[in-house]
Nucleic acid binder design. Structure first.
Length: 208
DNA sequence: GTTCCGATTTTCT
DNA sequence: GAAAATCGGAACA
């Protein structure tokens, strides 16, 4: 399978986000290689996007979002978790796609060990879980995933049915529907542990 | 320098 | 259903 190119990421962020569904994340560790198929993402842009870290302009933290497309933007949040994003848009314009959930494909034993849980659908069904399962932390912030050996993305097959909804966990995201997920996938965040129907099911486009 | 709070997960009631 | 865990970045003084 071909590796995703610089050009793939140098586009309108929501388009990149949607196209990332089905693509494969490859994480090479010292003695194991972990592979997972992306099933849920969210798009974040710049000044026009109040939910984005880059909304208030360029800072030390968000500089990666403004830089060359095709790099990893990793940040630490809630004092406990890391989140993996892939930068988009041409250099100088802010943009990134948050990888929210994936389907484990390879190195599952290692992922279980890192997560401390057995269930496949609970291994990477959330942005914090995903980074923990794949051993992704701030050391990978800024990594060029177009050429990196430690972290790379492979072209995949777009899911037959893609769901769309508002973004999760953002306080000021408005009605912007920039969350994309593989419809019906048990590996999507909240598919088992939460119950969207109790919250804002309609706004999230998740029914049943 | 100080304060506030988050693109979350887990655990307890 | 609610809250704790836990820390760095960004904003304000």
């Amino acid at each position: 399978m071909p590796r995703l190119t610089r050009e793939f990421f140098a586009r309108y962020t929501p388009d990149v986000a949607r196209d990332l569904l089905g693509c494969i994340i490859v994480r090479r560790l010292e003695d194991v290689t972990l592979r997972a198929r992306i099933v849920e993402v969210e798009a974040y842009r710049g000044a026009d996007d109040p939910a984005s870290h880059a909304h208030r302009g360029l800072t030390k933290r968000t500089s990666v979002m403004f830089g060359e497309p095709g790099h990893a933007y990793v940040y630490f949040t809630y004092g406990n978790h890391y989140c993996l994003n892939l930068t988009t848009e041409v250099e100088g314009a802010a943009g990134a796609v948050l990888i929210r959930a994936a389907e484990p494909l390879g190195g599952i034993r290692e992922m279980r060990k890192r997560r401390g849980v057995e269930e496949l659908t609970n291994l990477m069904s959330g942005p914090g879980k995903l980074t923990k399962a794949m051993g992704i932390d701030l050391l990978l912030n800024g990594e060029d995933i177009v050429v990196s050996r430690r972290l790379s993305l492979l072209m995949g097959v777009t899911p037959p049915s893609t769901g769309v909804s508002t973004r999760i966990g953002v306080s000021d995201g408005g009605e912007t529907e920039w969350r994309y997920y593989e419809e019906g996938s048990p590996f999507v965040s909240g598919a088992r542990t939460h119950n969207y129907r109790n919250r804002a099911a309609g706004r999230r486009g998740v029914v049943g």
